[in-house]
Design a protein around this nucleic acid. Structure first.
Length: 477
DNA sequence: ATGTTC
């Protein structure tokens, strides 16, 4: 790809807007040479396609964990003028508000390791997982409608966690504008029994420890020390968000014709933000995002209960932060020196706001927003900080994880789940999964090294390393 | 990611 991408720095490359007819802005790729070698041609085309969309501002942005997605690349960020621009389900993804949160604890890895099997087995029961899995609670239609509007706050109000948790969620765990009236009966029926479940695929609940601290000051503010046990929860809006996305694609395919929007790829289906179709998609997307925040909040509560059952009380399991990886939202950013209201789409990308952003809770105002980057199963996860450079260059955004290099089908052909489990055990990681195939699909070999991805965003300056977290136990669907 | 080819 080096013949089409122009080097700006060792970590930033430009695809000029002359690359493809109709591009309104260039695309910027945050990658290094190593990632350039595995960059998919189709992902480059997708980033160029996004640059042609109505109302796009500044650039189509690509993070180092990029791979081909539905319409937009996964690892893509795009900002559209809030008045003249569009909103697109392909720019959010099927798993609306797939996201990550991390809890700290007062426990050390030496205290937890001897009990890791018992702990993970208990967590595996306390937090249901797997495709189509159903949860331990049943909500009514009215409650579901409230969750669509209130997000994590509904969960806290109903006994799952604390008000302090809400302050440590992006958007306080609630995206404004969620509405149940635009969510189909089918989506609601899928979502109702799945609240409080982990799901499948790359979703997980992981017990980790802080292996290395890169930034003492920030780590202190987050309450992190080397050797301390942390818990990472990675999941999304389950069948509900998936159904909302599917339903909306039908509507927006029609809207593309109705509003005479010219697109290089049907998968970029979108509607003007100010149209009925666009507003309804946003409301359903926000409702799904809020369901996902309630979901992670409920799982957090059961995680704390399980830890207390095994290790007793006063474990200090505070929520460090919760970030969305798949979401669209209205934000203000500077474009060519002018403040603009934009609809920022982050698909497989993380908000990474710098210090003094008004969106941050008081304790993080001085250091910047915690950015949580899950590893693939068995590999390190990272905590970073958002930066002022990200505010200037990437609409305050960074990478979201390690990104696939092997398809699920390929991984199942090449790898055996039992063998993956044994390999992880040798590395001191106990894994509990619903079935062997998931271990093959999610094996470390199927993913880019998160270390490389994180190295790129750190060196590019769009987020900065704070801590590396090493897994000791994983529960997977 | 996903009642994993509704």
């Amino acid at each position: 790809m080096e013949n089409v991408l122009k080097k700006i720095t060792n970590y930033k490359w430009e695809l000029p807007k002359t690359y493809k007819k109709g591009m309104k802005v260039p695309a910027y790729f945050y990658i290094n040479r190593e990632l350039m070698d595995i960059l998919e041609r189709d992902a480059v085309e997708q980033a160029a396609n996004v640059a042609t969309m109505p109302g796009i501002q500044y650039a189509s942005l690509v993070m180092p964990d990029v791979h081909v997605g539905y319409g937009f690349p996964i690892g893509g960020v795009a900002g559209f003028d809030a008045e003249e621009g569009v909103v697109s389900p392909g720019g959010v993804g099927f798993d609306i508000n797939c996201g990550v949160r991390v809890l700290r604890s007062n426990l050390t890895v030496d205290e937890v390791r001897p009990k890791i099997k018992e702990l993970i087995d208990e967590l595996f029961v306390a937090v249901p997982s797997g495709v189509g899995s159903e949860g331990r609670l049943r909500v009514t239609d009215d409650e579901l409608d409230e969750i669509f509007v209130k997000g994590a706050e509904w969960a806290v109000r109903n006994g799952f966690g604390t008000k302090e948790d809400l302050k440590h969620c992006e958007e306080n765990g609630c995206l404004e504008g969620g509405r149940g009236d635009v969510v189909s009966k089918k989506a609601k029926n899928r979502g109702k029994p799945q609240l409080g479940t982990l799901g499948s695929g790359n979703h997980f609940l992981e017990v980790q420890y802080v292996e290395k601290i890169y930034n003492e000051e920030a780590a202190k503010v987050m309450g992190l020390e080397e050797g301390m046990v942390t818990v990472m929860i990675h999941c999304g809006s389950r069948g509900l968000g998936h159904q909302v996305c599917t339903d909306s694609l039908e509507v927006l395919n029609r809207a593309v014709r109705k509003y005479h929007i010219s697109l290089p790829d049907k998968q970029l289906a979108c509607a003007p933000i100010k149209s009925r179709e666009g507003e309804d998609y946003f409301a359903g997307m926000a409702a799904s995002a809020n369901y996902a925040w309630a979901n992670r909040q409920i799982i957090t509560h059961w995680t704390r209960e399980t830890f207390e059952k095994i290790f007793g009380s006063d474990l200090g399991m505070d929520l460090i932060y919760d970030v969305a990886h798949n979401i669209a939202k209205f934000e203000e950013h500077y474009v060519n020196g002018e403040k603009m209201k934009l609809c920022i789409h982050r698909k497989g990308a993380t908000r990474a706001f710098g210090r003094n952003s008004k969106e941050l809770p008081e304790d993080y105002t001085k250091i910047g927003q915690p950015v949580l980057i899950p590893g693939s199963m068995g590999t390190a996860s990272y905590i970073l900080l958002g930066t002022e450079k990200a505010m200037k260059e990437t609409f305050g955004s960074t990478c979201h994880g390690s990104g696939r290099v092997m398809s699920r089908a390929m991984a199942k052909r090449k790898l055996r789940g039992s063998r993956v489990k044994d390999e992880l055990a040798r590395k001191g990681i106990y894994v509990r999964a619903t079935h062997g195939a998931i271990l093959a699909e999610e094996a470390p070999q199927a993913y880019k090294l998160s270390d490389v991805v994180v190295d790129v965003v750190h060196n590019a300056g769009i987020s900065l390393l704070v801590a590396r977290l090493r897994p000791i136990g994983v529960a997977k669907g």
